[in-house]
Write a protein that binds this DNA or RNA. Structure first.
Lengths: 145, 145
DNA sequence: CCACTTTAGTTCTAGTTAGAACAATTGTCA
DNA sequence: TGACAATTGTTCTAACTAGAACTAAAGTGG
């Protein structure tokens, strides 16, 4: 007898929406959109990476990624560098200004979320993380054709 | 000592993204976008409701809701009716065609997600639902100014 | 009663999303 | 080697998101 999916799905969606509202508002107060923050956070502490890798890590589609990187480049926070090994490919990396923004915003956001979740039950969060990981594994398998 | 938020947040985001990819693709195969489906599902089995109520239930902002309802109205699936009690307000309700689409797509989507999650550990899902509900409660409280 | 405040939904802007089409480059295999 | 397939990032379209500004209607309180 399969478990009815609606209640747990609804809770997953609602919980995510609540998180997105809280986290997104704080990120925007730092001067970035959530997707821009995600790109910067992914590039932080790396030498850069190809668009393809960046898209895989952020689950961002090619067309969207181009737009976001364009706008971050306009802000002077990232740059494109031709790949040394593949004529089709480009490396996206943080500029010095981008690294400064990363150094400022990443700890600020993590710190903020830490305070938001300061009162949570530790054991419960560890359990939640494992259960979410389990569910994600199933969803990702089903998502493959 | 607060629990570091990054690991559980990351898992929440990843799990949601995996769900969104699977569910969204199926909804689109039914001829609707995910937000359109959400509106139709919310209006299903009701006599309709004001924009404000609809927005609260779907967590959709006013400007976005207007656009979605416009497009659903263009498809003939919903209609606007002047509120009998408030000259500023309108009731949004499913048309007969909209109700037929609801009757077809809602069980199809629920059934699909049921099959996707057919193999899950029942106890684990019940636990997950409770833990997500707990986390959501905290996030929603912190989201209030 | 009336001035002022709040509310409802629309319009608008900047940014994001899914996904298709495209040109240029690389990879594969006979 | 060369034809063809696959890959890379860009461009494009339709739709969605946050949030501000707006007009018209309702609510509030002196």
């Amino acid at each position: 007898m399969p478990v009815p999916s609606l209640p747990v799905i609804r809770e997953l969606v609602r919980c995510y929406q609540a998180f997105d509202a809280v986290a997104g508002a704080h990120i925007r107060s730092l001067g970035l959109t959530a997707p821009q923050f995600d790109i910067i956070a992914t590039l932080g502490n790396t030498e850069g990476m190809r668009f393809k890798e960046l898209g895989e890590k952020t689950l961002c589609t090619k067309g969207t990624l181009t737009g976001i990187v364009d706008r971050l480049a306009d802000k002077g926070l990232v740059r494109r560098v031709a790949s040394p090994t593949d004529g089709r490919s480009q490396i996206v990396q943080l500029t010095a200004a981008g690294e400064a923004v990363f150094a400022h915003t990443f700890p600020a956001q993590i710190g903020y979320m830490d305070t938001v979740l300061a009162e949570v039950d530790t054991e419960r969060m560890a359990r939640l993380q494992q259960d979410l990981h389990y569910l994600r594994g199933i969803l990702e398998r089903k998502g493959k054709p």
